[in-house]
């Protein structure tokens, strides 16, 4: 299980090439990468704040839950903090399992929990001003799926 919280960028390709590379029993690797979106060309940057210590703990708990629920061979979570420009990678998750269904479901689960249960907060700094991104009811409701 790999959990990293960092300011630096990461190389999605290199991470996936290394992920579960030594496991012969893996038949499926699923990954998701989150990118800073600027839908209306107003965003200067996204500032991501986190709670050092609790963040690592929460991500490790979430990944451990996914590992046990889906019998994963491995799970990876990388999440950045600090100021990120449109188009920059924010985070990625990857899951490795014998078969694809478990890998897809576990990756979906990781994302749902990471959205609402990992202590990160996003502030959008736009040409019109700045505002904290509000949590969506949909994101909270999504936890009910699991």
């Amino acid at each position: 299980m790999i959990v990293r919280v960092q300011a630096e960028d990461f190389d999605t390709g290199a991470e996936l090439a290394d992920f579960a590379a030594d496991r012969q029993d893996v038949g499926a690797v699923v990954s998701f990468t989150g990118v800073v979106r600027d839908s209306d060309a107003m965003l200067d940057r996204m500032e991501i704040e986190h709670y050092p210590g609790m963040t690592e703990r929460a991500l490790t708990d979430i990944a451990a839950t996914a590992m046990s629920r889906w019998e994963l061979a491995d799970a990876l979570v990388i999440h950045r903090h600090g100021a990120l420009r449109p188009g920059e990678r924010i985070m990625m998750v990857a899951t490795a399992a014998a078969h694809r269904r478990a890998a897809f479901e576990a990756a979906d689960f990781l994302m749902d929990y990471l959205k609402s249960r990992a202590p990160f907060w996003k502030k959008e700094v736009t040409r019109a001003g700045e505002n904290w991104v509000a949590a969506k009811d949909d994101d909270e409701a999504a936890l009910g799926r699991w």
């Binding site: 609790m54 703990r57 907060w121 991104v133």
Partner: peptide, 29 residues
């Protein structure tokens, strides 16, 4: 609210707690 880095409720007791954190709903991912 989080007590010693674990999410908690507002009616939770503070016995033995060292660190209390207050924040808005989280927006990771």
């Amino acid at each position: 609210v989080a007590l010693d880095q674990e999410l908690a409720d507002f009616d939770a007791p503070l016995d033995g707690v060292r660190e209390v954190a207050f924040f808005p709903p989280m927006t990771g991912g």
